[in-house]
Amino acid sequence: MNIDRRKFVSRSFAGAAGILAGSHLKGLSAPGRLTAKQEEALSSKPEKYDLMREVMKYRKIDAHAHIYFADNSPREQLDFGERLGIEKQVISRYLSIMPGTPEQFREYNDLTIKAIKKYPDHLLGGFVLNPAYKKESLEEIKRCTDAGMIGPGELYYQVKINDPLYYPIIEKLIELKMIIFSHAECQLGVGGYRMKYNGYKEPNTSIPEDFVDIARRYPEGIFQYAHIGGGGDWEYMCKTLQHSPNVYVDTSGSNNAENMIDFAVELLGEDRLFFASDNSYHQSIGKILASNLTEAQKKKVFFDNYNNLLKKGGRNVD
């Protein structure tokens, strides 16, 4: 192979970084200067990067997605799945309605059941419930499990995850070896966090401290903290959850802050992150591919971590 030396060197600023090692650490003032010759060699075009090949390289389970009461749902979700190589999506219709009666959650779950029956190869179902209705919720777990759902979908803001009302539900989910998955936020003025700021949210929205609390009470439970990219303060989330080994986070949400994934892996370890979109599909993949995770780590996050936990209940996808 005829490698043009100049072109080879020219590929990268990274090459230059070797020469300028650490220069950017000196702040914004002028980094060290290169010789004219080095400059010349380094200033041409970068190599082409084939993004879609990278995207398609990894098997993926989307651990947090939703369907809607809309004509284009779940068609639109499936379309993104196909476009971006997402093998399975764990869908639910989250209970974004108050008070969240049994009638309401059954209706929401019926939508999910219909979808997973129609697209069994691509969709996995998660049920929703409201622990304020204990009997009905436990019955709903049975009904949905019988219908083929793999566990709870994104449980919502009717009751905090560490509220005693949740105990019997959580105990049931532990018994069924299911992942206990709940919505969460981390924003000034929400769910009890620095309430002098008013975030205008439901008061029982779960926050990271609530997960720490319930995870300590049920060390055998497997908890999924929803969407570190959901708009909240992901540094706060990861720091709070760092020492709760049975709390996993999903990477979903419309926010794709640079360094979020690296930060989460640094604090939580490479086994406690699940790839997920929360229907922000581009961001969900972009943020992981743009991270500094190794290929093995990316594989874990995109697929293995979640699948390994599904295995515990025999619900794994392969």
């Binding site: 993004l51 995207v55 971006l84 802050a257 581009h282 972009g286």
Partner: peptide, 13 residues
């Protein structure tokens, strides 16, 4: 502030 690839993915996909 945002990751380097998502803006690109919106085009390439």
């Amino acid at each position: 502030i945002l990751d380097y690839l998502t803006g690109m993915l919106r085009i390439e996909a």
